[in-house]
Design a protein around this nucleic acid. Sequence first.
DNA 1: AATCATTTGGACAATATTTGACCAAATGTA
DNA 2: TACATTTGGTCAAATATTGTCCAAATGATT
Lengths: 106, 106
Amino acid sequence: MSKYLTTIGEQIRKLREDQGLPLRKVAAKLDIDQSILSKIERGERNASKEQIIQIARIFEVEEKELLINYLSDRVLYDLIGEDLATDVLKVAEEKIKYFTKIRNGK
Amino acid sequence: MSKYLTTIGEQIRKLREDQGLPLRKVAAKLDIDQSILSKIERGERNASKEQIIQIARIFEVEEKELLINYLSDRVLYDLIGEDLATDVLKVAEEKIKYFTKIRNGK
DNA sequence: AATCATTTGGACAATATTTGACCAAATGTA
DNA sequence: TACATTTGGTCAAATATTGTCCAAATGATT
C-alpha cells in the first residue's frame, strides 16, 4: 500500500492538525491569508510549488514526499473525466523513458 | 515500439504534410490563423482539446489516437525539469486505480 | 534571378484564469 | 456566552492564454 493515496491538501491538513496548529499560524509562515490555506487543504485552490516546499520545511518532512503527492495531483487534474487516463499515463511514461534515453546520448 | 513516441505537434504536421496540405488550408478549417497552427505543430502553442478532435476529423484518424498523444504531452509538460517525473507518474497511476475502485463501490 | 506560395516570428488586443486580501458567516470549543 | 478557528464569497491585481495581423524568412517554380 502506497503512502500517497491521498490528496496533497489532505496530507497538509493532517500534518497541520497533528501539530495542533491553526490555519492562521501556518498561513502566516506561508505569507498568505488563512482562508487561502483552508482552500488549499480542501483542494479548492492550488498551491504553488514554492509553497509546497515551504510547507515541507515548516512541518519538517521530506520535500520529495510532498512534491510527489502534489505533482501527481496536478497530473490527475489534467485527466479529470478522461476515460483514456490510464492509457495516457502509460504513454507519458514511455515518452519520459524514451526522451531521457535520447538525452543521455542515444 | 509504441506509435506515440512523438509530440502531438509533430504528429499533426506529419498528417498534414502527408496530405500535401498547406497550413493555410488546415488552419482555415480550424478557424484559426495559419501562424497559430504553425506554432501548434512546433509545440510553441497549445491546442485545445476541441481542436485536436477537429484535427482528427479533418485527417480522418482515430480521435483516441490523437487525444492520447495530446494528453500525454500535457502531462509531461507539468513535469518538465522534474527528476521526480517517473515517480510522479507511478503515483498518479496508483491514485487513478484507487479512486476508480472507490467510485465503483469499494 | 524573379516570382509566388508557404512558413515563421513578434507585436498587439481581448479574454480567461489565477492569486490573494478581505470580511462576514458558520462552526467548534471552553 | 465568549472566544478561536474555519469556511464561503466578492473583489482587484497580476498573469496566462488565445488569436489577429503583418512582415520577414524560407522554399519551390519558371
